[in-house]
Design a protein around this nucleic acid. Structure first.
Lengths: 166, 166
DNA sequence: AGGTATTCGTTGCGCGTGCAACAACTTCCT
DNA sequence: AGGAAGTTGTTGCACGCGCAACGAATACCT
């Protein structure tokens, strides 16, 4: 009686695979991601009017040399399609927090550049966001576990990235 | 010269927070999730016609007693809204892989129940999916790391869940 | 040089999702 | 019993994203 059901035994073979460690890890990755993202989203829109996705863009720009990034590079960093990023930057630009600037050495390309308004928005939203994450993530994991989690996720991400080049 | 930029120093304070370990972990969670999900999606639709989300539903139903689950419970397990789940089940039901059944002891409720066709679809898609995940995830992490990742993610998920009850 | 292939960013389109509002039903309270 | 409050699942609506196709510019190749 491996499984307590009252169903025909030819429905059983699937069950052998269901608790495969990879399936389990995959599920946890999705569930943890959704859970964390949803509450973070909510918390953030309670204390600020900057959506999480915008914050992702602003943070990446802020930490880049010249506080600007090529559109395509930003898309890769954000793990999203270039078309998705185009609209995202459209919205942030409409809010004045980012500016598109022609790329000097490649006339096809554009830089997304942080504006003063963007820096202000970031400075206004970031502390609250960090505090939220400290409660949400830091409340579940101690410093060592957090570091280990980050290491494993980065490893996973990198492996997928270079075994499936764009 | 903590940061190699040529910008006014009043843009600096943000940088102090940007490499906060929680921000970093949050970023990795999102990036690893997107990366893994996207390639898995692609691989799956190459060898099967079952979308990943469907597989999530089928797997959860298959491992549940009676191979059926209340809609609301399924929504919670899937980390999605009940309205999102309604449409998702609509689609899977239209494909004949799931059947809605009235709930005997609560006339508001419904069970989503796996059909034979659903079991067949699952049996057809699961082996390939597991093989994909073995290459994608197993290629990046050994068995111990995988177990540790799963443990940390589950912990994170659970903490978020019960510190933010529905 | 000149043509082909590739890359960059944008657009039309469709799809899947969450939110708010709703009707049907249950639970609780007095 | 009977009414208020909560729960369950569905719908209208809008939003954000990916895919495919496109024009523009660059890289390659002979």
């Amino acid at each position: 009686m491996a499984a307590p059901t009252d169903l025909p035994t030819d429905a059983r073979p699937v069950e052998d695979v269901q608790d495969d460690p990879h399936i389990e890890a995959f599920g946890m990755l999705i569930e943890a991601h959704n859970e964390v993202l949803h509450v973070t989203q909510r918390q953030l829109e309670a204390t600020s009017d900057v959506p999480v996705a915008w914050l992702g863009v602003l943070i990446r720009l802020a930490r880049s040399p010249g506080q600007r990034l090529r559109m395509s590079e930003l898309a890769r960093d954000m793990t999203m399609s270039t078309s998705g990023l185009t609209r995202l930057v459209d919205r942030i630009e409409a809010a004045g927090q980012v500016r598109r600037e022609a790329c000097p050495e490649d006339r096809r390309g554009f830089h997304a550049a942080l504006t003063d308004e963007g820096r202000a928005a970031l400075a206004g939203a970031l502390p609250g966001h960090v505090a939220d994450l400290e409660r949400t993530i830091g409340g579940a994991l101690d410093a060592d576990e957090l570091a280990e989690l980050t290491r494993l996720l980065r490893r996973l991400r990198d492996h997928v990235r270079d075994s499936h080049p764009v």
